[in-house]
Amino acid sequence: MISLICLPIVQFFGNYNYVIHMVLFSFLYITMSSSWNIIGGYGGFISIGHNVFFGIGAYFSGFIYARYGISPFYTAVFAGMIATVFGFAIGLITLRVKGPSFIISSIALLMIFRTLFDRWELVGGAHGITLPHNTLSVEWSKIPHYYALLILMVLSIYLSWYVRHSKFGLALRSISHDEIKSEVTGINIKIIKVTAYALSAYLIGAAGAIWGDYLTYVRPNIFFIILIAANMVLMCILGGKGTVTGPIIGTIVMIFINEFILANFGASELNIFFTGLLMILTLLYFPDGIIGSLKKRKLLPGFLDWG
């Protein structure tokens, strides 16, 4: 943890932007996959449209920045709230179905948002919003994002840990096993499900706001693509969905693999290929993920066993 806080010091000794970029990219995805894990892992509702909230957060803060000049670093908190409100509203509608129907409805949701933002002229249509660069020098320009995403990541892990060990999380996991039995035991399943969904939207929305500023543009074909959601899902499954440390490990492994592929094959099309292949192999031979499998065999080292 301390080493992560201190890591930007390397910039005093030269330009390590690539390292910084990779680490903050990991922060971003750990935030997203840990958040996804709340509804997808504990709750068992597999959403392949969860980056809708990522886009909503990015568009909210990006629009305010472009129009009123208020930096996303201040508005990220509100971007998260907006995402939560949307999460609540959408959750009320979509969480009535489960299983494969829910997966399909999440894809439909993503397509609806993609189409809306592609056509919505106020926020730039398909071209999206372009944001001003920050005024820091090249070495230091990534540092604010670094710390912002670090904070979000820590929050997301804490949230995930908290949910895992709370009564709320227990109810959520019982819903994922059997909705009807849970309801009979007196759990208000609707409130629990929708709250979990909205909760998982919050940090993803906030992360979207920061990421929009980092990229300096917010476009539908960057934020509303299914690959982002696929990554969230795969990272959780690879690491072990429904565990606290699974998404973290899964994300780190995935990012290494992605970088390896990019470095050796170059083409980003192959990245999709390998992501898909990894997903198939994990599901077929490794459905409990890294953490889950280790736990089953009682090989999980104590420092990774957070529940």
């Binding site: 068992g44 597999i46 392949i48 299983g99 494969p100 997966i103 399909i104 696929a230 899902v233 499954i237 083409a267 099309e269 192959l270 990245n271 999709i272 290929f273 390998f274 992501t275 898909g276 292949l277 990894l278 997903m279 198939i280 599901l283 077929l284 459905p287």
Partner: peptide
């Protein structure tokens, strides 16, 4: 009729998509 098979087909779609795009 499970989420798992849906995700498997999703992965398959990505594999073919990546291959054709490549």
């Amino acid at each position: 009729y499970s989420e798992m098979t849906v995700l498997l087909t999703f992965g398959t779609a990505m594999v073919i998509d990546g291959l054709l795009a490549f």
